[in-house]
Design a protein around this nucleic acid. Structure first.
Length: 706
DNA sequence: GTTAGGG
DNA sequence: CCCTAAC
């Protein structure tokens, strides 16, 4: 344990500072509501830490006296010694989840021996950073420059980190474990424009059992965020309510309101700097609806392919001062598309703040201590809560299960705001983002042992929640309400697309696009007739629609929908994206379905007959039964065909369209353009004529009436 | 609901 | 493909 006894020797005078912070916090608590969240966040964390450390040092100073000598803090890998022991960090740090901390540790510190390097590699430099922060913050808390101070310290902290990272660009999360000692979590990051460093970071630094998996686990690598995160904690958990053992030091528990667990500072990268451009609701809306929503679908794919995919993911956090780079965004977006991270709510206004989160796999949530301390459960949706169960040792049928939800973590937020934006505007932006998430489209999921309990009709007793052991692993998650629109189940595999004209005209089973998936969209499954109390069997079930398409374990009775190999984009997820408009926008982009040559042929043929400008007729004529092709689609396709026909063949992409067809396209387009022009002129003339006549008549009548 | 056009 | 304006 890294107790005061062990820390203080390394940092003379630190104890005083800790005491100061701790006391200050106490005095401040009454007025904390008035304090800025951002300030409070950091400060409370530090205050909590200080208090805890002090407390710990007082209670265990004697016992740890010798330990401190044995475990040099800096450079010695003292933490590692501890963690390599009998306690898997996984379990110990569970409750940090509420603080957004555990994910990393859990992700990287499995009992696997080869992962201990993490802990080894990063000795307690972090404790220094975080402790130093506490003093600095305490000194500046009354001023308005807390942010700046924090920033400074963060940078400092970062520099410390870099000492240990070497060429690896990244940062480490400082965190205090349940035991009260500071863990060094490694946080994979990416610097600069951050595309390429992929290989060199976390995965390499610490060989994981499955590099691929790890890559997928850390979507944030795409984001150029070299930052140090500050867990945000408002209130330490009262120790009285928690059995005081090694898990009693709980940081990162706060009120019941939302908490943004991480404060991150993003390194500024002039290279990628993009001055604030046109902004406005429209752009925001566009981003929301057209781009970022794409993030969501990936979740399913992830779950589909790898249930444990999210383990070790990151929590929601704030990235301070993130400059807004379109390129980054694109990368991010792309990354999400490819790596399938999780759903996200993206709020953009213009500029520089952002946060993101990665959900964690239920697997990682499983571990929990048995001491009744807060247990962090990570929902598959990236929303999680920490729960403290207070339950009587014996549960009778009449006994009540008492639990308090310490916090909910919002699914995720991505916020961009100009550097020049005011703090007030930032607050409003964040508030909007949060409100958007909370406003609607959020449901609550219940997890037990990290698995969702979907049967709402079960009693707590039946699900096993009444037992203390299980209660400790109880968790709640916020998740988008599976209102509608289950992911369209389809494939982009050309082989499954209509290949000839005859097939075009039939919405055969090969194109189960939109109609197929929309069943079973109800959030709550029908009451199960099976009332067995074996929660284990039920845990594999899913409560949320978003989880419907998952791994094999879900192929039970609920698997009403056969899930073919799914295109990533087909798994569009619905997000509660309601910005200014209160109503949530459940936007789902259709799957991209490139036109086949045969389709093009049909289209050309139809246009040749009816001409352009009569897309409905075209649709009815040649694509009547191709439900996935709207006349707008046909019109758009024609547009692109014309464009394609005009450009050089080398510039064309996608499935090559026979030149013959393109020639016909040009010919038809030219013909109908003229024809349409004539028609238009004729119509215009006719309309004008009629109008004039009418006007004249009215004029006459008017004159008469006058 | 359609059509046209920008994104 | 999406979104909107204009029919």
């Amino acid at each position: 344990m890294v107790s005061m006894a062990s820390i203080c020797p390394q940092f003379p005078g630190l104890r005083d500072q800790l005491e100061y912070v701790s006391n200050f916090k106490r005095g401040l608590s009454l007025n904390k509501k008035k304090v800025e969240d951002s300030q409070l966040c950091a400060f409370d964390l530090l205050a909590s830490l200080a208090g805890k450390l002090l407390q710990e040092s007082e209670s265990s100073a004697s016992s740890n006296a010798s330990e401190a000598n044995d475990q040099p803090i800096i450079g010695g890998g003292g933490v590692k010694c501890e963690q390599a022991e009998d306690r898997p960090l996984k379990a110990e740090c569970l409750d940090h989840g509420s603080c957004g901390e555990s994910a990393f540790v859990t992700g990287f510190t499995s009992p696997n021996s080869d992962q201990k390097c993490l802990l080894n590699a990063f000795p307690h430099a972090e404790s220094y950073s975080i402790l130093e922060r506490s003093s600095m913050i305490s000194n500046s808390i009354s001023s308005e420059k807390v942010g700046a101070d924090l920033k400074t310290v963060i940078c400092k902290s970062k520099s410390v980190c870099e000492k240990f990272t070497g060429k690896v660009e990244g940062s480490f999360d400082s965190r205090v474990s349940c035991d009260g000692y500071v863990d060094n979590g490694f946080r994979r990051q990416q610097g600069g424009d951050g595309l390429d460093t992929g290989g060199l970071t976390a995965e390499n630094a610490c060989s994981l059992k499955d590099p691929m998996e790890m890559r997928m686990k850390f979507p944030a690598l795409i984001k150029p965020d070299n930052d140090v995160e500050l867990p945000s904690c408002r209130e330490p958990v009262p120790n009285a309510s928690i059995p005081r053992r090694r898990n009693d030091t709980k940081l990162g528990v706060r009120d019941d309101d939302l908490n943004f667990s991480r404060c991150k500072k993003l390194l500024t990268k002039p290279k990628a700097f993009r001055p604030p451009q046109r902004i406005g609701d429209r752009r925001i809306r566009k981003l929301l609806t057209s781009k970022y929503w794409k993030v969501a679908p990936k979740l399913k794919e992830c779950e589909l392919s790898k249930p444990a995919f999210f383990e070790g993911g990151m929590k929601p956090h704030y990235r301070k001062r993130k400059l807004c780079y379109s390129r980054e965004r694109y990368q991010h977006d792309t990354f999400y598309k490819r790596k399938c991270t999780d759903r996200s709510v993206v709020m953009t206004s213009d500029g520089g703040f952002s946060s993101e989160s990665v959900c964690n796999s239920p697997d990682m949530s499983l571990a929990g201590d048995k001491n009744g301390t807060a247990v962090m459960l990570h929902g598959a949706n990236g929303v999680s809560s920490s729960v403290i169960g207070h339950q009587s040792p014996f549960h009778s049928k009449d006994s009540h299960v008492k639990l308090s939800i310490k916090s909910f973590r919002i699914p995720e937020l991505f916020i961009e705001i100009p550097e020049t934006a005011t703090v007030g505007s930032l607050k409003r932006t964040v508030l909007e983002a949060v409100s958007a998430v909370l406003g609607s489209g959020l449901g609550v999921g219940v997890l037990l042992h990290g698995m969702k309990v979907r049967d709402d009709n079960r009693t707590l007793l039946q699900t096993g929640m009444a037992s203390k052991e299980n209660l400790d692993t109880l968790g709640f998650s916020l998740e988008p309400i599976p209102v509608q629109a289950p992911p369209p189940l389809c494939t982009e595999d050309p082989a499954l697309l209509p290949c000839d004209t005859s097939q075009l005209i039939s919405s055969s089973p090969t194109t189960p696009i939109i109609d197929s998936g929309i069943s079973d969209a109800l959030p709550d499954p029908p009451p199960s007739t099976n009332l067995d109390t074996n929660t284990e069997s039920n845990h594999e079930s899913v409560s949320s629609h978003s989880d419907m398409v998952t791994d094999d374990t879900l192929s039970d009775s609920r698997a009403l929908v056969a899930v073919p190999p799914i295109d990533v984009e087909a798994l569009a997820m619905v997000l509660p994206l309601n910005l200014k408009s209160k109503r949530s926008e459940l936007v789902q982009r259709r799957t991209r379905r490139p036109f086949s040559v045969s389709e093009v042929e049909a289209l050309v043929h139809a246009v040749e007959e009816v001409g352009t400008g009569r897309w409905r007729d075209v649709k009815l004529r040649s694509f009547e039964d191709a439900d996935h092709r709207t006349y707008v689609d046909l019109k758009d396709k024609w547009k692109t065909l014309v464009h394609t026909a005009r450009i050089a063949p080398q510039q064309r992409r996608g499935e090559p369209v026979p030149q013959e067809l393109l020639d016909r396209v040009l010919a038809a387009h030219a013909y109908w353009s003229q024809h349409q022009a004539k028609q238009h002129n004729k119509n215009q003339a006719a309309i004008l004529k009629i109008t004039v006549a009418h006007a004249v008549r009215n004029g006459v009548e008017d004159n008469h009436s006058i």
